[in-house]
């Protein structure tokens, strides 16, 4: 009950700030309309934003998140040059295939961010996952080996350690 209330208040403040940034401030009509619409949004969809209790070590987790963002941007720039090289090459040097990797993460939000990062990093695309066994199916543009452990080391471990630090 208390967590739900906190979640609604956070959603209300965020929605109102985004509304104020997107409109011209100074018009009283738009300020009032934004207030009412933010209340409606918080009442309808507010309870899904925060679902867990507060965890310890906020500063450490924020630093880990910043490091994660920069690492993700660097991997993404590498991915783009990789794709550009493959596309320009006249003979198309690809060896595609769908492989399987394991993950140790348990939270839904952490797994979502992990799969999004896998999609945007060099040569990999998430196809599906089964949450019971903690396995992710990944389409690779250059398959190195068919072994599960080696693929886990090559694909998943780039982000998994730092995401563990952020989320748990």
């Amino acid at each position: 009950m208390k967590i739900e209330m906190k979640s609604r208040i956070v959603v209300f403040v965020l929605a109102y700030l985004v509304w104020l940034a997107l409109t011209h401030i100074g018009d009283i009509q738009e300020v009032i309309a934004g207030f009412i619409i933010s209340i409606v949004v918080a009442l309808i969809a507010g309870k899904f934003f925060i679902t867990t209790k507060k965890q310890k070590g906020t500063v450490r987790r924020i630093i880990a998140a910043v490091i994660y963002i920069f690492k993700f941007l660097w991997e993404m720039i590498k991915a783009n040059f990789h794709v550009a090289y493959i596309v320009i090459h006249p003979m198309l040097p690809i060896k595609p295939g769908i492989v399987k990797i394991r993950t140790r993460l348990s939270k839904d939000s952490a797994i979502t961010i992990l799969t999004n990062s896998i999609t945007l990093t060099p040569g990999t695309l998430t196809v599906d996952l089964n949450p019971d066994k903690k396995e992710i199916y990944v389409h690779c543009i250059d398959v190195i080996s068919a072994d599960v452990e080696e693929n886990t080391r090559n694909i998943g471990n780039r982000f998994e350690s730092i995401l563990t630090e952020v989320f748990e």
Binding site: I94, P96, G97, I98, V127, D128, V143, A146
Partner: peptide
């Protein structure tokens, strides 16, 4: 050119 397909 596909080598493996674990999903299928």
């Amino acid at each position: 050119q596909t080598v493996v397909d674990d999903y299928a």
